[in-house]
Design a protein around this nucleic acid. Structure first.
Lengths: 170, 170
DNA sequence: GGCGATTATTTTAGACTTAAAATAATTCAC
DNA sequence: GTGAATTATTTTAAGTCTAAAATAATCGCC
């Protein structure tokens, strides 16, 4: 057994085949394009129909799933944005009385943010519309295609997470 | 033939099933997450290894494919960002001598932007690295999975484009 | 108990981004 | 040819975003 195929991890594969990676680049571009198209449409409709920005909607969506609220750090992790970014978003949403800050029990460093009654009501109306929009925007995919796409994106996600994680792990 | 299934377009489907569209929302979320993971990693490496921002790299990538340069409007279309955004990016890249503006022949409104020799050289080095990164980041997908993902995303893209286009077309 | 390391948040500076209004040039119908 | 509509770009104002430094509080170890 001399010419067995040795399984290679992604990095090794890359090192050994110094080609231009056209296929992977096109896949990345396609993910990017899909995201931009969907996001652009949702952003436009949120602004026109609810006079709200997408980042604020996203933040409220996180809070809606956490009846007891969550800390700023948790928010920034789930939204995949920096801490400072969340500080500013919460500031603006709090100025609109859509969210409220309160001190965290047992930890005077942290604050817990949650939707106000008004914020929850506003969010629910927007979320209903948003669900319809997304279903419309992705409406040409069959249920089978949708779940296959979901499965493959999940794999892509895991692959990307692995690549990012490698850094801290020498 | 009374109970035939009538094909419905996306909008009709949405109107008839006022459910919560959980599946579609999860698919959208997954696209978003993949984009953020890949983009975050690429952004970080571009900054650390080349001291360049992702938007500037993206703009240069567009120009690299157009040996004769392109107008600001063309750039903004291809990058899927606003005109004003491109104006600023070109300003900053021109200040670094990586791109140059010149008047368009036959149209005094327009300007053509192209890579300088220095810009092209810098871009080529970054592009080579970028190709390797993307291949590494998406490295856990088999060739078959990659092409299937590409096909499905293409369908999603077409669906989203259709939904955005409907607007202008009443 | 005290002190260094960690963690949560805010601040800062700069860049990116959008939407909308303003400028300037072209095109097209007449 | 003239003027209205269109097109290319820039400007403006406000918001979003990042990376890095600064604050402030907690934790862990002795």
């Amino acid at each position: 057994m001399d010419d067995v195929t040795i399984p290679l991890d992604a990095e090794t594969k890359v090192a050994e085949r110094p080609d231009d990676h056209k296929t992977e680049l096109r896949l990345w571009l396609r993910i990017f394009t899909c995201k931009m198209l969907i996001e652009g449409e949702v952003r436009r409709r949120l602004r026109e129909q609810f006079d709200v920005t997408l980042p604020r909607f996203d933040l409220m969506a996180q809070l809606d799933r956490a009846p007891n609220g969550m800390t700023l750090g948790e928010l920034s992790q789930r939204m995949m944005v920096t801490n400072g970014n969340v500080t500013g978003l919460v500031d603006r949403l709090a100025a609109q009385k859509l969210v409220a800050r309160r001190p965290a029990p047992h930890d005077r460093r942290a604050q817990i943010v949650s939707l106000t009654a008004e914020g929850r009501k506003a969010f629910r109306a927007m979320a209903r519309a948003n669900g319809n929009w997304i279903a419309e925007i992705l409406g040409d995919l069959s249920p089978g295609e949708t779940s296959e796409l979901m499965r493959l994106l999940d794999k892509a996600k895991a692959s990307a997470r692995k690549a990012s994680a490698k850094r801290g792990t020498s």
